[in-house]
Design a protein around this nucleic acid. Structure first.
Lengths: 137, 137
DNA sequence: AATGCAAACGCAACATTATTGCATTTGCAT
DNA sequence: ATGCAAATGCAATAATGTTGCGTTTGCATT
């Protein structure tokens, strides 16, 4: 399915800003921070970028992941998520050297045995260390 | 061991600010945000609080955990951590209603089977939902 | 108990990240 | 081609975190 259709299918209008962001996010399995994208789209207003990302997240097109340093990052949902619940079901890896974040699509989150009374809705799992290219160097 | 000794043993000077923060953190198994503590210590300078928390973290007295919303939180290390590596080995629970964060001391982190080439150093696991008191209400 | 010094603190300024309101522009259904 | 809600750009503001510097304070030593 092409990008424009993915956007329109979620009830969002197709605009240059949105097409651009979707294209970048779709290029690899990385999670981009607002600052990363701001450099790639110098002509786009900062606020617009915030809104594009928030709209995508609410529409279930992208996931929001918080990095070790508190920076918010966004990654494309691999499989289209239901509108209600689109938490990541896989583990993310954050590289301490290049600060890139990777989606480990094949590493799924386990179920934790939390104390009775607590009601779990979802979970965020972040493994940190050095990525393939950085640990090779 | 009393609080003053814990602080002094890490090579830090014992001050009213530090004693106060340690006492609050030791009261329960919760992770406090800077904003929480700022309300409790209205006479303490914001910068001092940042520095107290950072110093504690570097000394291995407290853990730093990032909440779902990107807010940094601090919790007392239960067992004294080695100076070099003091990542949390347990799971944290973040309540979406009261926004408190709890240390689930008894729920330990699993080992993930990450792709070859990636080198893991540690991991952050956050389960979110509703805590005991909030899911009862 | 008095002294000296590095550590800790308070204050001011600044940097970064994120949000809100409003007027203007634009996608797109009609 | 037209109208309208949605999206955008701009300005202002809020929240969060950092840095520099002069002053104060814990504490080891005398």
């Amino acid at each position: 399915m092409d990008i424009a259709h993915q956007i329109r299918d979620k009830g969002l209008k197709v605009t240059p800003s949105r097409l651009g962001v979707m294209e970048v996010l779709g290029q690899n399995h990385q999670a981009y921070a607002h600052a990363d994208l701001e450099l790639l789209f110098k002509d786009m207003d900062r606020v617009t970028l915030y809104r594009v990302l928030n709209d995508f997240e609410e529409a279930g097109l992208v996931h929001k992941i918080i990095d070790m340093d508190g920076v918010t990052r966004f990654a494309l949902c691999k499989h289209s998520c239901p509108d209600t619940h689109h938490a990541d079901e896989h583990v993310h890896f954050s590289c301490q050297a290049c600060h890139k974040m990777f989606c480990l699509e094949n590493v799924s989150s386990p179920v934790f045995n939390i104390p009775s009374g607590f009601k779990a809705i979802g979970q965020n799992i972040l493994v940190y260390g050095f990525c393939k290219t950085c640990s090779a160097a």
